[in-house]
C-alpha cells in the first residue's frame, strides 16, 4: 500500500476547497498527496471484489488548461510537493483504471457540482460505492475548508468501529492532536466498551492518546452530536452491518453525516485494519 492520499481534482472553487482539505490532511498525517486530474468523464477502480465506475460530472473536466496550474498552486501554498497521477491501465481508450493501493482517498460528499447535492445529508451513490469497496479510509471533505485540531472517533464497539478506532489513534498520534471517543451506549455499561478495547489490545494506546470520552447513556443521538468539537475530524466506521439490518434500523454513519458538518474519515467494511500511515 502506498503511503499516499489520492485526490481527484475538480478545477472549480468548490474543488479548490476540497483540495485544500486534502493538503491539510496529508500534512497532518505525513502522507504524500497524489492528485489525479481527470481527462475523461469516467474512471474505474478495480477493488478486490468489485469494479467501481466513477462517473464524474462536467465540473471535473472544466478548463483543463489551467487545472494542473491551479492544483499545483494550492498544493505548494499548503507546503507540499505536487505529485500527479498518470493512469497506466485503460479498460477502454477513454476509460482509465486508477490504482487502488492508497492509504486514503479524498471524496466530497457527492461527485457532483450541483449545489443542492453538496450539502449535508447527501452522500452520492458513487461515493457510497467507493466507501463500501475501498481498502483505505475515505476522507469526506466539507464544502469549505476548515482546519481540524482534534480527532473524534465514533466508537460503538462493532468490528468496524474498532477499525475506526485504530485509524483514529494512528491519525491522532501522527498529527499530534487530542483524541476524543464518542459512544452512544444505550443500555450497555462503559465497561463493555472498555473490555472490547482491551480485548483488541488497544487500551494502552487509548489511555495514552484519548483526552476525553463523550459517553452517552440516555438521550437522542442527534442531540449528542452537538458535543463533538466543531474543529474535530470525525472518524466513523461505515457499512459494517448487513444491508438488511441497515435498511431496517438505519446507519449511524448516515445520521452523523446528515447532522455533523465536520470533515469525516470514513472507514468502510473492506478497509485494511490499519491504514498505511508512517
Amino acid at each position: 500500500m502506498k503511503n499516499e492520499l489520492l485526490h481527484i481534482f475538480r478545477n472549480t472553487p468548490f474543488g479548490r476547497e476540497t483540495l485544500m482539505q486534502s493538503v491539510y490532511f496529508a500534512k497532518q498525517t505525513a502522507v504524500s498527496l497524489r492528485v489525479y486530474i481527470p481527462a475523461f468523464r469516467q474512471f474505474l477502480m478495480y477493488f478486490e471484489n468489485e469494479v467501481v465506475t466513477v462517473d464524474l460530472d462536467r465540473a471535473f473536466l472544466r478548463d483543463p488548461t489551467t487545472a494542473r496550474e491551479h492544483a499545483e498552486a494550492v498544493i505548494r501554498e499548503g507546503g507540499l510537493e505536487p505529485h500527479f497521477l498518470e493512469p497506466k491501465g485503460f479498460t477502454a481508450s477513454t476509460l482509465p483504471d486508477l490504482p487502488v493501493e492508497y492509504a486514503f482517498m479524498c471524496c466530497p460528499r457527492s461527485i457532483s457540482d450541483l449545489s443542492t447535492k453538496i450539502g449535508l445529508g447527501h452522500i452520492g451513490p458513487r461515493v457510497r460505492n467507493i466507501i463500501r469497496n475501498a481498502s483505505f479510509p475515505i476522507l469526506m471533505a466539507t464544502p469549505v475548508h476548515k482546519e481540524w485540531r482534534s480527532v473524534t472517533v465514533f466508537f460503538g464497539g462493532s468490528k468496524n468501529a474498532v477499525k475506526a478506532l485504530r485509524t483514529g489513534l494512528t491519525v491522532s498520534r501522527t498529527a499530534g492532536c487530542p483524541l476524543f471517543l464518542f459512544t452512544e451506549a444505550g443500555r450497555r455499561p462503559k465497561s463493555h466498551y472498555e473490555k472490547i478495547i482491551e480485548d483488541r489490545g488497544l487500551s494502552g494506546q487509548v489511555q495514552e492518546l484519548v483526552t476525553g470520552w463523550l459517553f452517552f447513556e440516555k438521550g437522542e443521538f442527534r442531540n449528542h452530536l452537538y458535543d463533538v468539537p466543531h474543529d474535530s475530524l470525525a472518524v466513523v466506521g461505515a457499512y459494517g452491518h448487513s444491508a438488511i439490518r441497515e435498511a431496517a434500523f438505519g446507519s449511524k454513519m448516515e445520521t452523523i453525516q446528515t447532522v455533523l458538518p465536520n470533515p469525516m474519515l470514513i472507514v468502510g467494511p473492506r478497509c485494511s485494519p490499519a491504514p498505511g500511515l508512517p
Binding site: 469516467q42 474505474l44 478495480y46 468489485e50 465506475t53 479498460t91 477502454a92 477513454t94
Partner: peptide
C-alpha cells in the same frame, strides 16, 4: 447508460488478463 468501451470482446479479454475477471454490472 454511462458505459464506455468498444464492441465488447476486447473488454472481456482485458478484464480476464489484467483485472481478475472484474466487469462492471452495467
Amino acid at each position: 447508460l454511462k458505459d464506455v468501451g468498444g464492441h465488447g470482446v476486447p473488454d472481456v479479454i482485458y478484464s480476464v488478463t489484467r483485472r481478475g475477471g472484474l466487469l462492471r454490472f452495467r
